[in-house]
Amino acid sequence: MFFQLLDDNPGFPDPALAEEDGLLAIGGDLSMERLLIAYSNGIFPWFSEGEPILWYSPHERCVIYPSKIKVSKSMRKILKQKVFEITFNQAFAEVIRNCATTERKGQDGTWITNEMQQAYINLHQQGYAHSVEVWQGGTLVGGLYGIKFNRVFCGESMFSHVSNSSKAALIFLSKMNIDLIDCQLPNDHLMSLGAEMISRELYLEMLQAP
């Protein structure tokens, strides 16, 4: 059973009450207050255009410990040769727009709606959401964005127009002052980079550690 959120109450039910697929609640809005409460409790929005807002808190979390990220020999060579220029928080709106418009194999449309983009741009403007940009020849070719909460970076999405550019963004992120990169849900690409599954309880413990 999932919960219907009230418009006048930005709070959420206990994440432990989420359904088997992680669905916890439906409705509400994407206000800054509600989003910050959500992320501080291991909850994130994920829905498609035309659907009501759906909020998830998976029972197991896909994460990457920065010290365990896998960097292949070929990738080390690319980084050493400085094939890419990598920046931080220099083009947040461009990154999220590219994440929304880049076609993905097996995915029809995007969950990063215009409303979602504006909500995270607002979070970025207030210092909560951040982006890593990967450039080649002055052109933005890859990147990622997410929310930093305490010492956890809650990754939202990444894109790549040039081979290895999103990997470069993730490796750059892993060298920042964080203890954990939250990937939310697993996929083959993330697992190949060293992602692993941890319990919600351990995730929340790390999320709420100062």
Rank of each mutant, 00 (worst) to 15 (best):
F172T: 01
Q107M: 13
A168V: 09
L6C: 06
D108G: 02
S165F: 06
F12H: 04
D188Q: 12
V141W: 07
V83P: 00
M116E: 00
H161R: 15
N177C: 02
I96F: 11
G27M: 00
W46E: 00
R200I: 06
L123T: 11
P52Y: 10
G11M: 06
L190K: 02
E20W: 02
A38C: 09
Q208H: 07
R76V: 03
E133D: 01
S74E: 06
A25E: 00
S40L: 03
P58K: 08
F12Q: 05
Y120D: 04
K77W: 04
W46Y: 12
S131F: 10
M197D: 00
F44R: 08
D8V: 05
E156L: 11
M158H: 00
F92L: 10
S192K: 15
T102N: 04
L173E: 07
S166C: 09
A209R: 15
F149A: 01
N164V: 00
Y39Q: 07
V134W: 11
E51F: 05
G142L: 06
F84L: 10
S166P: 09
C183D: 00
G138P: 06
L207T: 08
L23V: 00
D182G: 05
N9R: 08
D8F: 12
P210V: 07
I78N: 04
N41Y: 07
V162Y: 02
V63E: 03
V63F: 06
S31K: 07
E51M: 12
W111D: 06
M32H: 03
Q136C: 09
N150Q: 15
Y128H: 15
A168P: 10
K68E: 15
L35K: 02
S157P: 04
Q90W: 01
F92E: 11
I26M: 13
S131K: 12
S40D: 09
S72N: 08
F172G: 01
G42M: 05
Y39I: 09
I112M: 08
S67V: 12
Q125D: 14
Q184N: 10
T87F: 06
Y128R: 12
P15A: 04
M116W: 10
L6R: 14
R76K: 15
H124T: 04
L30V: 09
Q117R: 15
V162W: 04
I171S: 06
P15Y: 01
M176W: 03
G11T: 15
L17W: 07
C154S: 14
L185K: 10
M32W: 00
I86Q: 05
F92N: 12
T101R: 12
E20N: 04
G137V: 11
K82H: 14
I64V: 14
S74G: 14
A169E: 05
N41D: 03
A129N: 11
